[in-house]
Computed example of a mutant assay.
Amino acid sequence: MELRHLRYFAVLAEELHFGRAAERLHMAQPPLSQRIRDLERELGVRLFDRTRHRVQLTEAGALLLEHVRPVLSGVETAREAMRRIRPGEAGMLRAGVPPDTNPVVLPTLTAGFARQAPDVLIELHELTTDQQLTRLREGELDAGVVRHPSDTVGLESGPVARRELGVVLPADFPSADGTPAGEGTGPLRLRDVDGTPLIIFPREMAPRLYDHILTVCRDEGFLPGAIRHARNPHFVHGLVLAGRGIHLNEAPGAPLPQGLVWRPLERAELAWTTSVVWVPSRHNQAVAAFTRAVTEGLKAAGHRIVDEEPAGEARE
């Protein structure tokens, strides 16, 4: 039983006239008659009583119509849902953002996107860089906000934003001159914390970025005494307060818990380097609007745009 045959049946049941039904269906009358006969043969019942002057539903036809109407209504509802989910067509844009995205970014991002693409709903997913890249390639996301370096081969990217990282550490952590870290505001050198345990995100979140951070630390004279993994900011801060290590991150947007301080690094070798990426074949006006909105949000959170290359240019 084909869906189109059920639709032919429903239209004929409403019109009770082969000519008018065929006109509504944009088809000739003979093929319509043939399709109805095929349906009757398949079901083993007569659906219409036909005479030269009128067409009437049989009891079986009336019963079938009761079942067919909700089926056709459900199909149309499903079609409408699929139309709405197509990005850029008064639909929905599915996008990923890193779990530790600065809170300042999100309100600026969503407001900017609503202003630029008012007919498109945005659905944000909290995902790691590698999770985003996987879902982009599998068609489950339309765009992602990822940290670099990362495996973006085959994807396209918007402007790159950069925010230098510093060190979150206990206020009584001894600086190179012997004074507690909480008593100074000047930059630290990575070699000043050599041997201290490091608290960092799990490697599977962004393998290339993870390896890059550890390589820079080594090159700058910082070999952690141990590496501990954490992704939740509250857990990270608790570990630092407990003396379990130090943490590399951008300057905090809100006051840190009592007992913690943030100090910039003397050399700006470590940074969050972020951009929007997408599959080239899925780029459209909604993705472009999202890219602009993310750029606005990152600027509001203190990032500077280091690559104003137009969105749509491919890079690895």
Rank of each mutant, 00 (worst) to 15 (best):
I199A: 01
L141Y: 10
R208H: 11
L155G: 03
P170W: 00
V120K: 00
R162M: 06
R208I: 04
R94Y: 09
L127D: 08
G144R: 03
S150K: 02
L121Y: 01
V193P: 10
T101Y: 02
L133H: 08
E183F: 05
G96R: 05
I122D: 00
V145S: 11
G178A: 03
T179D: 06
G195K: 09
A161G: 09
T152P: 03
D194G: 12
R94L: 10
Q132I: 03
E138M: 07
I122F: 00
A176P: 10
P118S: 00
P149N: 02
P103M: 14
A143V: 10
V193E: 14
A161T: 05
R163E: 06
A171W: 04
A114K: 08
P103V: 11
T196P: 05
T110R: 06
H148D: 02
L165H: 11
A161Y: 05
D211N: 06
P118F: 00
G186W: 00
A161M: 12
L155T: 09
L121W: 00
I199N: 03
G96V: 12
T108F: 03
R191S: 15
L124V: 15
V146I: 15
L209V: 03
E138H: 13
A117N: 05
H148Y: 11
S175W: 15
G112A: 06
R135N: 13
S157G: 12
E138L: 14
G139V: 06
D130Y: 13
G184P: 02
Q132M: 13
P202N: 02
E204D: 14
E156F: 13
R162A: 08
P149S: 05
V193A: 04
S175L: 15
A161H: 12
L106E: 13
A95Q: 05
P98E: 06
R147H: 10
R162N: 04
A176V: 15
A206P: 04
L198G: 09
R163L: 14
A143T: 02
P149V: 05
Y210E: 06
P99I: 10
H125L: 02
S157I: 08
R162C: 07
L127W: 08
L190R: 05
P99E: 14
F173T: 11
M205I: 09
D151G: 03
G144I: 02
A95F: 12
R203M: 12
V104Y: 11
D177C: 05
P118G: 01
V105K: 04
E156M: 15
G96I: 09
P118A: 00
T134W: 12
T110W: 04
F113I: 06
L136R: 08
P170F: 09
A206W: 05
L136E: 01
L93T: 01
D119C: 10
L209N: 04
T128P: 09
P149E: 06
Q116Y: 02
E126W: 15
D119G: 02
G158L: 12
P107H: 06
H212E: 04
R135V: 09
I200P: 04
I213F: 01
V168M: 01
T179H: 11
D177K: 00
V120S: 04
V145C: 08
G139S: 01
T185L: 00
